[in-house]
Amino acid sequence: MQPSAKSRVIAVVVAYMPDIDTLRALLDTLLAQTAGVFVVDNTPAADRRVEALCAALPQPALHLIRLGDNFGIARALNIGIDAALAAGATQVLLSDQDSLPAPDMVAALLAAMDDLQRAGQRVGAVGPTYTDRHTGITFPFQAHIPGRFFYGHRRPDAAHPTVEALTLITSGTLVPAQVLHEVGPMREDFFIDHVDIEWNHRARAAGFSLFGVGAAVMFHSMGDAMLRVWRFGWRQESSYSPVRMYYRIRNFVALCRLPTIKWRWKLRNAAYWIYFIYTQTVFGQQRLAALRMAARGLRDGLRGRMGPWRG
Results as ranks from 00 to 15, higher is better:
residue 57 L to I: 05
residue 59 Q to M: 05
residue 61 A to V: 01
residue 65 I to R: 09
residue 71 F to L: 11
residue 72 G to I: 13
residue 73 I to P: 07
residue 75 R to D: 08
residue 78 N to T: 11
residue 79 I to Q: 01
residue 81 I to T: 12
residue 81 I to C: 11
residue 86 A to N: 04
residue 90 T to R: 12
residue 90 T to I: 09
residue 91 Q to H: 15
residue 92 V to C: 08
residue 93 L to I: 15
residue 96 D to V: 02
residue 97 Q to T: 01
residue 102 A to N: 04
residue 104 D to N: 12
residue 108 A to T: 08
residue 110 L to K: 03
residue 111 A to V: 09
residue 114 D to N: 04
residue 114 D to Q: 15
residue 114 D to C: 07
residue 116 L to W: 13
residue 117 Q to D: 09
residue 121 Q to K: 15
residue 122 R to N: 07
residue 124 G to A: 14
residue 124 G to F: 04
residue 128 P to G: 09
residue 132 D to Y: 05
residue 132 D to H: 06
residue 135 T to H: 05
residue 135 T to F: 10
residue 136 G to W: 01
residue 137 I to P: 01
residue 139 F to E: 06
residue 140 P to R: 06
residue 141 F to A: 12
residue 141 F to I: 05
residue 144 H to G: 01
residue 151 Y to H: 15
residue 154 R to G: 11
residue 155 R to S: 12
residue 155 R to C: 05
residue 156 P to R: 10
residue 156 P to H: 00
residue 158 A to K: 07
residue 158 A to W: 11
residue 159 A to G: 06
residue 160 H to F: 01
residue 164 E to F: 09
residue 166 L to W: 00
residue 167 T to S: 12
residue 169 I to K: 11
residue 171 S to N: 15
residue 171 S to K: 10
residue 172 G to N: 09
residue 173 T to Y: 04
residue 182 E to T: 13
residue 183 V to C: 06
residue 190 F to G: 15
residue 191 F to H: 14
